[in-house]
Design a protein around this nucleic acid. Sequence first.
DNA 1: CATCTTAACCGAATCTCATTTGGCATCTGC
DNA 2: GCAGATGCCAAATGAGATTCGGTTAAGATG
Lengths: 153, 153
Amino acid sequence: MTVDQTDRELLALLQQDATQSYAVLGQAVGLSAGAAHERVRKLKASGVIRRTTIEVDPAALGSGVLAYVLLDSDAWMGDAPTLQALKDIAAVEEAHITAGAASVLVKVRTTSTEALQAALRALHQVDGVTGTQTIVVLESFFERPPAVGATPA
Amino acid sequence: MTVDQTDRELLALLQQDATQSYAVLGQAVGLSAGAAHERVRKLKASGVIRRTTIEVDPAALGSGVLAYVLLDSDAWMGDAPTLQALKDIAAVEEAHITAGAASVLVKVRTTSTEALQAALRALHQVDGVTGTQTIVVLESFFERPPAVGATPA
DNA sequence: CATCTTAACCGAATCTCATTTGGCATCTGC
DNA sequence: GCAGATGCCAAATGAGATTCGGTTAAGATG
């Protein structure tokens, strides 16, 4: 699908606040409510918009501990069983295969350092993992959604 | 604010799909539409729900390169000027002060390796930064919203 | 150049759902 | 046991999502 400048503006506006009416959205980009609706419908249908969701404050739910963990391994970790094992650990928010010394990088958020320890234990038990290096976050400057601005030349 | 089990269920449902009607939400948790609405309203007012937003597929917009960058520094980086400097780099999605060897960890997403290089250049120019270590992501297993389940004992 | 096709837009009509209101039951503290 | 507060339901109202018919503009085709 072609995503033009107007679409990007709509995406940016919806990223900031997905509850605004199509009338307002349309006005902001110079379209009628109907036309804005049609564009957004297509963006959803084509998968550019994955879903509409809420952003929850982790601190409000007691998840105050954030850490990044590098996993060392003695086998290839890029396959489905590894993925599933990581997904099954609720504290794991992201998991990526990486280039460099470690093979996998995971982002972990827990309610306490005790819970972090439990998560690390679980990570150690994942097949193939031989060791971990943990980077504990002291303070988050910000976490924001991906930029949607026009692709620079 | 007190967040009980029903609230957590509502949060989980809204995280999956924030477009469902309050009638459906209420039914799912055993409440009337009005009561569900009232709970969600309070969650928003109290800041547990930060905002309603859309999740955009970065790949669909051409942002296929993801990397984590560790920043070394010769000064304390935990202050507002550093925050602002990092925020001004559009490719930076997250920035955290960390314990450990490096002082700051940033998540960077770009359209190409050339753009990644440009982002690294910009990071080097941030006041206090003396060096960087970059972890390039080869493949993302998943990136999901924070868990909202009941806090285990 | 005339015509056909397609895509995108607008404005109006319809219909669903968010939001508000009033009243009842439950629980708390006095 | 009583007053106040909290949380719920059911019903009314209005806003806004969604649909539809018709128009224009931009290419393609001959």
